[in-house]
Design a protein around this nucleic acid. Structure first.
Lengths: 150, 150
DNA sequence: TTCGTTGCAAATGCTTTGCATCCAC
DNA sequence: GTGGATGCAAAGCATTTGCAACGAA
């Protein structure tokens, strides 16, 4: 794909993130990161990301989005969530360990930046012979927007 | 489908569960419930369930398994989980509110019957205008079996 | 120059659906 | 008898993969 010769500085955030992760800096990867960064408060599906990047540069392929998201997830640059629906959702990593409020009607995801689970984590490690990685609390329910309807 | 004329009592657990849920008692539904009941300690995928029921009665259709599992989930007879992998897993409902330990290597799921989250639940309800349904804690990590390898 | 990355198209895997037949009530 | 349930086959959707062309280092 030929991407418009945009005067983007080589040392932008996306470039830094890629280099820090030991990944090659390609315009596609930078775009995906920028799209996720601009949607910082939301969770995007692969389709959302694809729509956004294609808006900017026609020809951006869907499978490239999936491949890039997978690589970025492996490199811990983005985080992937499967929150009950059938589609995965992505967000830029690096904030606090986070939990989610998932609306069972509209499937919107809100973040829950609370809940200290360190006690739970320690207990599990001690009791269950289970080396704990990510702890994720998902709470299903009905969000404020949906409480009027249905 | 013609199911073998097995002398199964009409008042078995599966029949009771179906009747209580207001669902018609069909041999297919009873079989699905029985399979889930026999695997009480595990989480089964739709494929697992299908393999098990087909073992007993040839001709049991895959889509019937999906339809039955969906109806049973709607009726809260079974619980569906999406625990990081792309495939849904099912188990008979009705035990304690439960949480999971998911091994990132083998994707095996262990149960975690602990963690009192009532405080968290109350706080969320008070603060977020979010009507809380199910709370599910998922902890990813490496299980004991996998700790040797890789 | 080299090997990783991308575009394209086709395949995959899980799940859902349309329709005719069947059976629980 | 009647509406819901099932079998079958085909479609659906999100995601993955093979391969040739391309481009970052």
């Amino acid at each position: 794909m030929r991407v418009a010769a945009e005067p983007t500085p080589r040392s932008s955030t996306s470039t830094n993130l890629l280099q820090a992760a030991g990944l090659r800096v390609t315009p596609q990867r930078r775009l995906v990161i920028e799209v996720l960064a601009q949607a910082a408060d939301r969770h995007l599906t692969a389709e959302d990301v694809w729509t956004a990047v294609r808006d900017r540069y026609d020809g951006f392929n869907r499978s490239t989005v999936y491949r890039v998201l997978e690589q970025l997830a492996d490199a811990h640059v983005v985080t992937m969530h499967r929150l009950g629906g059938s589609v995965a959702q992505f967000e830029l990593a690096g904030v606090a360990p986070h939990h989610h409020l998932v609306c069972v009607r509209c499937r919107r995801v809100a973040e829950l930046l609370d809940a200290d689970l360190s006690v739970l984590r320690r207990r599990v490690l001690a009791r269950e012979r289970f080396v704990v990685g990510g702890v994720s609390v998902t709470i299903e329910g009905v969000c404020d927007r949906c409480q009027g309807r249905g």
